[in-house]
Design a protein around this nucleic acid. Structure first.
Lengths: 336, 336
DNA sequence: TTGAAAGCGCTAACAG
DNA sequence: CTGTTAGCGCTTTCAA
């Protein structure tokens, strides 16, 4: 499959490489005759420009990276879908990186492995520490997603986790619930995400004069519905009682619903349940799920905007966009 | 951020570019002294090899593309996660492409836009026609996923859809169900996927002497739980009755469960429901979902194997791997 | 074991 | 409006 090069097209058309290049890149100043001639040659030879060579020559890769822990998690899947669409519409390709549960992998994202491969990175860190983040910041523009502190000089986009946590807890309190469990934070090594949600949760309880019972903080050893089901199940079996469950995310909520159902506990009658992320399936669970709705569109768009500015050469201080959120009220914790 | 080049390292270390290159690429024949010297210089200057330049020089990109319609769909999300992990473990990066509902986009995947960007493509087509597929096959190695016919010479990996459809239909028949609806195929322009599942479905019904009632083929105008909920809801409201629903995929099944629940129809007592794909959430729906379980691991691994052989230069005829499947029996259509 | 130099395919000054 | 030419940063014969 001898590849056809710009050179070959030039010869075939009897013009210079520059002219072919001009045609390929839709340069304005090419005579119509020449243009059609060149186009004919391109067609005849089946020429396709080599993206790699172009990259090397221009220095722009036209590629962005999205790094999340695991795209099989519905929230990240929806985020990836959204970012991918946006990237395409703005003329970028999208490289997908999964960091799993490994801090190493998160570091590698920042170090960029081999650099020069992408113009910028949209990165939702899960486990890496703040100072690590700061240390590994490289020349490649980065926008941080999710929550947690960010090193100075780095752009971030996130919803106000603490406020959202407070709101959805208040929603539970308005329902008259007083023994509210928190489900799904990490048993060891609390993530920034969990920390913020917990903090809003506790603040709301305190403000309402409700008790914050440490026994009601049900940690899990994984971010998964299975782990949540297990944790909630074990708690119930040990005799623990509560009338509401604030779940760290929709997946934990799904596991919680499952644990409750298997034990004949009615939702929302006996226990009201809330999730976080408002992924599609929350509208199809049984019961449907009350959950925090982040404005994913706004989030994705902001991230792309900030990143494009950095790619475009912006060198200023870190910007911090707070994306809007709302509470999607459904059956698992209806309106009062 | 003046980039550090191989050249710079060479000068700093007082050796030639070739030597630095040798060190960077772990070439065997470099004297330990030289090596450590070079490594020191690399460290000192903070050198990172430029991937693009390397690509241009070697011709290998070290990148694979995965093209699916939409990664926010759970099955594709789980597929992408799996393929991404595999790709990483084999030393590739993964470019994510979403084709949405557009045949154009699917063509573009094959044409490769600008080529030379990836070594190979794993592609699950949704809408493109067979002859289109054949016409647009290019120099870039491709492995086709999903179902449907493939042009000669192209590698494919899929489960035996027709057989799986037959099996899960038989499961429903063993439960004594006789009026089985089919939910979720396209109203216009049946996809190859739907066609095969329908054909296995109908074959099983016929073999059992059950009736194939055209009124029970509930098409939807999108591949989504909403669309399925709508279609099933409309059918029920119009007085249509059935005792089982074979859903084209898990999302359609979720929508079906929802429609049934809203109308007080009990699952599985009144209507048994089955899905397809066995995505994570099927274990947490209420009721949990009986569904076709494709061996995703086998599927992903096979696709990678075939692709790597092609990338490695294999030019033989198309291979066709049939990945194993099974039926995951859960509450929505329990064992007889 | 290491060095010199010729590309990989394209872009972009700079001339013409 | 079009041609010439020098890189982009790395790999890779071929010599030394």
């Amino acid at each position: 499959m001898a590849r056809v090069r710009l050179q070959d097209v030039a010869e075939h058309a009897g013009v210079s490489m520059k002219t072919v290049s001009n045609v390929v890149n839709d340069y304005p100043h090419v005579s119509p005759t020449t243009r059609s001639q060149v186009l004919a040659s391109i067609e005849a030879l089946g020429y396709r420009p080599n993206a790699t060579a172009r990259r090397l020559a221009t220095g722009r890769t036209g590629t962005l990276a999205l790094a999340v822990s695991d795209v099989s998690l519905p929230y990240f899947a929806e985020l990836a879908s959204s970012i991918s669409r946006l990237a395409t519409s703005r003329g970028y390709r999208l490289l997908l990186e999964q960091t799993g549960e490994s801090v190493e992998a998160e570091r590698a994202v920042l170090l960029g492995g081999e650099s020069g491969l992408v113009d910028g990175i949209i990165f939702q860190p899960s486990h890496i520490a703040l100072d690590d983040l700061a240390r590994y910041t490289t020349a490649t523009p980065v926008v941080l997603l999710g929550e947690g502190d960010a090193p100075e000089g780095v752009d971030t986009v996130m919803i106000d986790n603490t406020a959202a946590a407070r709101e959805i807890t208040e929603h539970l309190l308005h329902l008259g619930r007083r023994r509210v469990a928190f489900v799904g934070h990490e048993a060891h090594g609390l993530s920034a995400t969990s920390r913020q949600r917990l903090s809003g949760f506790e603040a709301a309880l305190r403000d309402a004069g409700a008790q914050v019972d440490p026994a009601l903080l049900l940690a899990t050893d994984a971010i998964s519905p299975e782990a949540a089901e297990h944790a909630v199940g074990a708690a119930l079996d040990s005799g623990l009682r509560f009338d509401a469950a604030f779940c760290r995310d929709d997946l934990a909520a799904l596991g919680t619903l499952s644990a409750l159902r298997r034990r004949g506990v009615r939702v929302p009658d006996d226990v009201a349940v809330t999730g976080w992320d408002d992924v599609t399936l929350t509208r199809f669970s049984n019961p449907t799920l009350t959950t925090v709705h982040p404005d994913l569109d706004h989030l994705a768009r902001s991230a792309m905007d900030l990143l494009e500015e950095r790619v475009g050469g912006y060198r200023g201080p870190g910007r911090h966009v707070v994306a809007p959120h709302s509470i999607s009220v459904r059956e698992s914790a209806p309106s009062a």
